[in-house]
Nucleic acid binder design. Structure first.
Lengths: 203, 203
DNA sequence: GAGATGGGGGAGGCAAACCCCAGCCGTTCT
DNA sequence: AGAACGGCTGGGGTTTGCCTCCCCCATCTC
C-alpha cells in the first residue's frame, strides 16, 4: 500500500460519490474484511484492488459467496491471461489502474448490468467455433475429485487410498489445483467455497 | 430494417447528441456508405448496426482500413461466439441491442480509450494458460495460402495445381474461408483487404 | 449440356494439446 | 522424522484441429 495507491483510492472514492446514480456504501476495506463488508451491504458492484487481495482466488471465493454482486477488479497492468483468469474466477470487469477515473465509473455502471469490461491489452477470445466458451474448465474432473477431499481435510495418503491412485498422483493433482486456483496451501484452499467449483467442473 | 430498428437508432442518436463529451459527426449511414463516412470524418468511435452490415467481415474490412477508429457493434442478441468473432474482426466492443441507451454511451466512452465491452452472455475466454490469446487464428496456414490465390483471381483448378493438392481440397478450404470471413463468393472476397488477414494468420 | 462455382455431408490420417498417472529431485514446516 | 509443497520428467490415453479427399446437390454461364 504505497501512498500512490492511497491517492488512487481517494480519487476514485470521490468520483464514485459524485455520481448521482451510485451510492457508496463502504470503502477502504482491508482484505480480510471484504467478505464481511459485502455480506453486510450486498452491493450491486464491488470494486476490488487486485494488489490488496489475499490471493487471486479471493475473487473466486467472493463470486461464489455473493453471485449477485458484480466484481470489478483493478489491477496494475493486467495481462490478457490475468484478465481472463479474473473472468474465470467470476469477475465481471478487469481494469488497469491506468484507467481514467471517469472510465472506472462508466465501467461500474456497465458491470452493474452484467456487461464485461476489459482493458485494451485483453484480446478477448479468438477462435471462431466458440468451443472454449461453454463454461469454465477451471478444474479437470479428477482434480475436482481431489479438491473435494482436500477440502474435507484429508491427507494426500488418505486421498490416494480413497481414489485408488498413487500418492504421487495425488500430489500432482494437488499441485495443479493450487496453481489453477492461485493458492499455495491447503489452508488457503479451506477458505474457498469449493463446492461451487466442483459443480462447474462437472456439468 | 424494421421500424423498430429505426426507433432504436433515433433514441441512440439523441443520447449521443446529449453527451457534452461526444460529438456526433454522422449517423444513419447506409451500409454501402459506412466506409466513405468513416474516411471523411475519421471518428474516434463508430457505432455499427450488425444487422445493417453487408457481412460480418465488413467489420474486419473497416478495422483494416481505419485501425484508429474504434468499432462498437450493436447486435440483436449476440452469442458468445458471435461476440468473439466481432473482436477477432477488430471490433472493440460488442453490445446487445437490449442494452440501455446510457450504457451504450458509457461503452462508447470506454471503447474510445480502447477498452473492450462485452454483453453478459459473453463468457470471455476460459482457459488459464492463455494459449488462445496470442493473436487471431482466423485462418489456418493452408487457408491463408488458398485465400491469397483466390484474391489473385485464380480458379480452383489453378489453385489446386499451384499448391499441389486436389481440386476437392481447394473447394473445402474455400468453403471454410468463406464461412470464417462471412462472405459467400469470390467477388465478396475481392473487396476485403485480405493481405492484412494473411499477415495475421502467419505471424 | 458441359464446366465452374457454391454449399452440404462425411472419412481417414496426422500432429498437437490435454488429462491421468507416476516417479524423481529438492525445500519447508511442525 | 513425517508430511506437505514445488519443479521437472515421462508414459499412455483421449480429444481436438487441420489437411486431404470424396460424395451429393443446386445455380450460373457459355
Amino acid at each position: 500500500m504505497s501512498k500512490f495507491e492511497d491517492l488512487v483510492a481517494i480519487g476514485l472514492t470521490h468520483l464514485l460519490e459524485e455520481d448521482p446514480h451510485l451510492e457508496l456504501v463502504a470503502n477502504g476495506i482491508p482484505p480480510s474484511g471484504i467478505e464481511a463488508a459485502i455480506g453486510d451491504h450486498r452491493p450491486a458492484v464491488a470494486v476490488l484492488n487486485f494488489g490488496s487481495l489475499t490471493s487471486p482466488a479471493q475473487v473466486f471465493q467472493l463470486h461464489q459467496s455473493f453471485p449477485e454482486t458484480r466484481l470489478v477488479v483493478l489491477a496494475n497492468r493486467p495481462t490478457a491471461a490475468e484478465c481472463n483468469q479474473m473472468l474465470s474466477f467470476g469477475a465481471t470487469a478487469c481494469l488497469s489502474k491506468e484507467t481514467q477515473g471517469r472510465d472506472v465509473v462508466n465501467a461500474v455502471h456497465l458491470a452493474s448490468r452484467g456487461m464485461h469490461v476489459l482493458p485494451r491489452s485483453a484480446a478477448g477470445g479468438g477462435s471462431l467455433d466458440g468451443s472454449q466458451l461453454e463454461g469454465s474448465d477451471l478444474l479437470t474432473p479428477r482434480e475436482a475429485d481431489v479438491l473435494e477431499l482436500l477440502q474435507e481435510g484429508a491427507t494426500n495418503a488418505q486421498i490416494a487410498q480413497a481414489l485408488s491412485i498413487g500418492l504421487e498422483t495425488v500430489r500432482t493433482h494437488a499441485r495443479n489445483i493450487y496453481r489453477k486456483l492461485g493458492v499455495s496451501s491447503r489452508r488457503d484452499l479451506a477458505r474457498l467455497a469449493g463446492a461451487a467449483a466442483l459443480a462447474e467442473a462437472r456439468d
